[in-house]
Design a protein around this nucleic acid. Sequence first.
DNA 1: AAGGTATATGCGTTTAGGCGCATAAGGAGG
DNA 2: CCTCCTTATGCGCCTAAACGCATATACCTT
Lengths: 97, 97
Amino acid sequence: MLPILSALSDQTRFAAMRLLYDGDEHCVCELMRVIGATQSRMSRHMQVLKQAGLVVDRRDAQWVRYRMNPDLSPDLKALLDAVFRAETQLNRERNAA
Amino acid sequence: MLPILSALSDQTRFAAMRLLYDGDEHCVCELMRVIGATQSRMSRHMQVLKQAGLVVDRRDAQWVRYRMNPDLSPDLKALLDAVFRAETQLNRERNAA
DNA sequence: AAGGTATATGCGTTTAGGCGCATAAGGAGG
DNA sequence: CCTCCTTATGCGCCTAAACGCATATACCTT
């Protein structure tokens, strides 16, 4: 459990995970553009997420496509659901204030 | 969201949170005994959990009683539920292997 | 083969975080 | 007041982790 929580407790990785949460594939170049991270930084963070088992990657020509691990256990999927739901709620409260 | 995930992504704090998850009060001395942490270490980790809003404390004579923040938003409570449920499941799988 | 795009990685630096030790602070009880 | 118990904190140390830069690797196109 700790590796997963650690993986999520970094700004860059959290942002990446939020993007991958849609279930679709995203290449590193897209992630770094959207998140605003340098290439090496983005690449390394994706390795951490992969190591934690949260994402899988696939080479496609010169790109590497990442997506949320489709074999995530229901409990872990539920954890991600709860995380992003809570985050949405916290953002709402923040904007209201 | 990140402060909460960071707070949970440490062994000692995770163990403490799991104990406080029962909703009851626990003094630092109990936590350090059960978890096996030194006093300063336990105290500091509890400050982190408190800072993250996950727990509240109360002075009671020479003790400080900690418990899960009773005003935790439903979404954050659900997050904790998901975390500990996922952890239980992971432990089960680990023991089965 | 050469050049261009995309990604990973070795390396050195910097920073954040956890730790123990010692000490302070809060409170109980003689 | 003094002592004991419990908790917090200042401080220095040490390790893990994040970063940028440069370079290697993989793949495509021409």
